[in-house]
Nucleic acid binder design. Structure first.
Length: 872
RNA sequence: GGGCGCAUAGCUCAGUUGGCUAGAGCACUUCGUUUACACCGAAGGGGUCCAGGGUUCGAGUCCUUGUGCGCCCACCA
């Protein structure tokens, strides 16, 4: 790379070629890393993005965080593997494509037929997949493309089929009739977490089934009452006690009902009439009561949302029409006791917003409670809970462990069949009453495959091991090849909203297939919100397109904006201004490097430790501390904190102090080597955050090896703490002088003379006086004295720092100086008072740690000394 | 109804096991074009740490009650 380094960093010139170099090098693939056999693993899967749309800024955040983890561990010598892929997102994708063909061709999927429709889906999928992969590269993801997977590709299909058959054979998968959440529009069941509740006003009717019926009930859905088979009351309810266990009959709008009166403690005596009409076919809890009490189930509503046959005049009517008819009839017969408006949560389909009908239906389920002999006679639920409880799987932040455990504890069987076309076909065939479950279509004629497909989470639940070659790499209970090398993975990084949908399923499926956890740690990030704290959405037009931002500010700036200020489990606000702010930092780093590079001839960094100046030792000590702190925080996944530390070091210590000092010090050769040493170190430290610019600069340094595979810096053993303190004194003096000039409004060009009295540090200040003169203090003459008697100045500014006194000759304004002094005196008095109070408190002196008390005493002495100096 | 989180400078947020004279970035004020950088440099102003009560020598930090906001789960007959 022979490009010149411009005054400002232009990411567009560098980023693509850098990514190409990385990709060509093969280092994204752990097999090419030339590591010792015993190198530790660091494996992570990319949560496969849905192929429904191009990536948004939330995905960018995922990639920034995960790439940081991966690059950090690669530099630390781990065998790092990050597996890319995409998710077919069955229902979501089918919906997008359905909408698309409706808009473009005015056709429904039924017009096209299953085969044609699926062709359209695959067409769409190839387009979006290409865009997604391009965006991933743009983000700088150092991900192993050679292992790319798709939840619906051939390898995953085999894995899914094998899993289904294995689970069926062990009795974990079963077919059952259960109340499911049915969307009449999508013609599909929905999982609990695919339901959206919409608050609405609803009419809440209290009525009797007929004139002679002794008990009144309440409902918002009178039409379902056609299928009532019982009335439930609270066993403690005095009003109804006498009816319990009786069987009563009623004529409800022409329909004969046989109603058993049952007792159930879950019935709230104070709600409605305290009596509940039980409709086993169209309500979840009613169905449970029906199972408990052995009640008949009468189906009233069909899959289209119409009243079924054999309900007289209501048959064939839409649900809402039937409801109106029943209300009118009840009104005519004067059976309605009360009609009130209540707030009701309507269950709707998260895709299309249609009201959900709870319906009994034949579906495939994964049992979470069936004991599995092979797994110590424990159920999947029990094993998954165990993994969380004994911290085999650790959640970051920890509070989500509780949420995971709560959810797992209340988990019900998982309905895995979906009545849609796009997805994994269920490996089950029927012939009349016969049923065959197997990985391949059975021999013989007339077998018909189950028309349903599998819940998309069934395939993504296997992601940690299906991407590593399961089932081929699992023979006779033994893991082989990639599966053996990389499973369980070390880290799962994903959003907290996926704990229930995805994380819990991955844990159960990995336990079933391999009898081991899928990952050791789960890092949960929050959502990326707009600058007002609102969710980004297309309709609100408050979204930020990552590709636009990359174009404008570069990937590194975007990554910093996504990484700094981002803490686990908390949402992050994002704005263009923020990204622009980090662009400024990137440019600063660029210019720091430019300055350093311009001073060196041979890029050598082997400085002579004997020739180090005070400022050299100071910056090396700071670097040492930064390395330690940054490494510690990164290994604890506090990347935001370590980024802040790095920025502090880079901008405040290195640029503002060390580089400035460097301009005014001798022994250039050795100092330039120190500069190179520092630069190489910070490039490594920054690399996981901002890979492009660091690699770009690195390649200007004549290094043979790429930065991506260099090694994480180690802290030096030497300790320059006392030198650091000495340099701090110089810094304080310089800042005091600048401050005094500013307070006194001394013209910038005006040169002053300084006399500094410092009995303890005379020698130090003499040695460093060139810095005091040079670093933006406007001092042209300086005199360091160790004894007050040497002072002869008349008009001067007086600054005190513990036992140091500074006299600035010239530019003195008596009034301003008085104001300044009064302020300082007041402040000092306040401090002294507060410490004295503390020290007068016997409890403090006796109970606080001795070290702290001594510290306070020393502080007090210093303040007193300063005060005395000023008052003199 | 059950649970979780948040509340600190004008804004966005840090603040590890209690030791704080409460920090950073942005914004703001003043000054400065000095040969790495104006996407810059120097100096500065700005806070009852949501409110009440408690524990403690000491509370932004721990306990408790309340208020406001956000989220999750359940229920809504």
């Amino acid at each position: 790379m022979d490009q010149k380094m411009d005054k400002t960093y232009n990411p567009v010139l560098w980023e693509d070629q850098i990514y190409e170099k990385w990709e060509k090098s093969g280092y994204f693939n752990p097999d090419n890393l030339n590591l010792p056999e015993n190198a530790p693993n660091y494996t992570m899967i990319l949560p496969p993005p849905n192929i429904t749309a191009k990536l948004h800024i939330g995905h960018s955040s995922v990639m920034a965080i995960e790439d940081l983890f991966i690059r950090y561990h690669r530099l630390c010598g781990y065998r790092t593997l990050w597996i890319p892929g995409t998710d077919h997102a069955a229902i979501a994708t089918q919906n997008v494509v359905e909408k698309k063909i409706l808009a473009e061709e005015k056709k429904t999927r039924h017009d096209l037929g299953r085969e044609k429709f699926l062709e359209k889906v695959w067409e769409f999928l190839h387009e979006t997949q290409a865009v997604i992969l391009k965006q991933t590269r743009k983000m700088g993801a150092s991900i192993d493309w050679s292992r790319t997977a798709f939840t619906l590709d051939e390898d995953r299909k085999r894995a899914v089929n094998k899993m289904f058959v294995d689970m069926y054979k062990e009795g974990i998968i079963y077919r059952g009739e259960r109340i499911v959440n049915w969307c009449p529009r999508c013609q599909s069941t929905l999982a609990d977490d695919e339901i959206e509740y919409q608050e609405q006003k609803a009419s809440f009717y209290t009525f009797k089934y007929d004139q002679n019926f002794p008990i009144a009930i309440s409902t918002t859905r009178p039409e379902t009452k056609l299928g009532d088979t019982a009335i439930a009351v609270n066993p403690k309810d005095e009003r109804y006690k006498k009816y319990i266990d009786q069987e009563l009959s009623a004529n409800f709008c022409g329909q004969e009902l046989n109603l058993k009166i049952i007792a159930d403690i879950n019935v709230d005596m104070n709600f409605g009439t305290g009596a509940l009409g039980v409709t086993p076919a169209h309500s979840m809890i009613d169905s449970q009561m029906a199972i408990k009490n052995n009640l008949k189930t009468i189906k009233v509503i069909d899959e289209e949302g119409n009243i079924k046959e054999n309900f007289g005049k209501f048959s064939g009517q839409k649900v809402l029409v039937a409801r109106k008819m029943i209300i009118e009839e009840l009104q005519e017969k004067n059976l309605i006791i009360k009609e009130e408006e209540i707030n009701n949560n309507l269950s709707t389909c998260y895709r299309c917003g249609t009201a959900i009908e709870p319906l009994p239906s034949k579906q495939w389920f994964v049992s979470v409670d069936t004991k599995i002999p092979r797994l110590g006679n424990k159920s999947l639920k029990e094993k998954a809970i165990e993994a969380g409880e004994n911290k085999k799987i650790e959640f970051i932040p920890d509070r989500f462990t509780k949420r995971y455990l709560d959810w797992m504890t209340n988990l019900h069987d998982w309905c895995i069949s979906r009545q849609i076309w796009f997805g994994h076909e269920i490996p089950v065939w029927y012939r009349g009453e016969e049923i065959y479950v197997g990985e391949e279509k059975p021999q013989g004629k007339d077998w018909k495959q189950d028309p349903d497909t599998l819940d998309t989470w069934f395939s993504s639940g296997m992601w940690t091991f299906s991407t590593l070659g399961w089932p081929d790499n699992f023979q006779n209970g033994k893991k082989l090849n990639d599966l053996q090398k990389f499973h369980p993975t070390q880290m799962l990084e994903t959003g907290y909203e996926l704990i229930t949908l995805w994380i819990s399923r991955m844990i159960m499926m990995s336990i079933f297939a391999l009898d081991e956890i899928p990952f050791e740690k789960v890092y949960l990030h929050g959502m990326v919100l707009d600058k007002n704290g609102k969710k980004m959405s297309k309709s609100k037009r408050n979204g930020i397109d990552p590709l636009d931002m990359i174009e404008k500010f570069g990937t590194d700036s975007l990554r910093l904006a996504l990484l700094l200020g981002n803490t686990p489990g908390n949402d992050l606000r994002m704005s263009e201004e923020k990204i622009a702010g980090y662009r400024n930092f990137i440019n600063k780093l660029w210019n720091i490097s430019r300055f350093i590079i311009s001073k060196t001839n041979d890029f050598s960094d082997d400085f002579d430790p004997q020739k180090l100046s005070l400022s050299d030792k100071w910056i090396l000590n700071k670097l040492n501390k930064t390395i330690k702190k940054t490494s510690l925080d990164l290994s604890a996944y506090k990347f935001s904190l370590s980024g802040e530390e790095l920025r502090e070091f880079t901008w405040n210590d290195l640029a503002d102090w060390y580089l400035e000092a460097n301009k005014f010090e001798k022994d250039e050769d050795n100092k330039n080597k120190v500069l190179l040493f520092i630069l190489k170190n910070i490039l490594k430290l920054w690399h996981p955050f901002i890979p492009f610019i660091t690699e770009t600069i690195w390649q200007q340094l004549g290094e043979k090896q790429m930065l991506i595979v260099s090694s994480w810096p180690q802290a030096q053993e030497v300790n320059f703490d006392s030198e650091e303190q000495s340099f701090n004194i110089i810094q304080e003096i310089i800042m005091s002088i600048r401050n005094a000039r500013s307070e006194h409004r001394i013209e910038p060009g005006k040169k002053l003379q300084a006399i500094i009295l410092s009995p303890r540090n005379k020698e130090l200040l003499e040695q460093q006086s060139h810095l005091i003169k040079s670093l933006k203090t406007g001092i042209n003459q300086i005199k360091i004295i160790g004894d007050k008697s040497e002072i002869s100045a008349k008009k001067n500014i007086f600054i005190t720092l513990a036992d140091i006194e500074i006299y600035l000759i010239g530019g003195f304004d008596e009034e301003k100086e008085k104001i300044r002094r009064d302020k300082e005196i007041a402040n000092l008095k306040k401090m002294i008072d507060s410490i004295e109070n503390k020290l007068n408190n016997q409890n403090f002196v006796n109970k606080a740690p001795a070290e702290l008390v001594a510290q306070e005493k020393e502080k007090l002495n210093n303040y007193k000394l300063e005060l005395r100096k000023i008052l003199n």
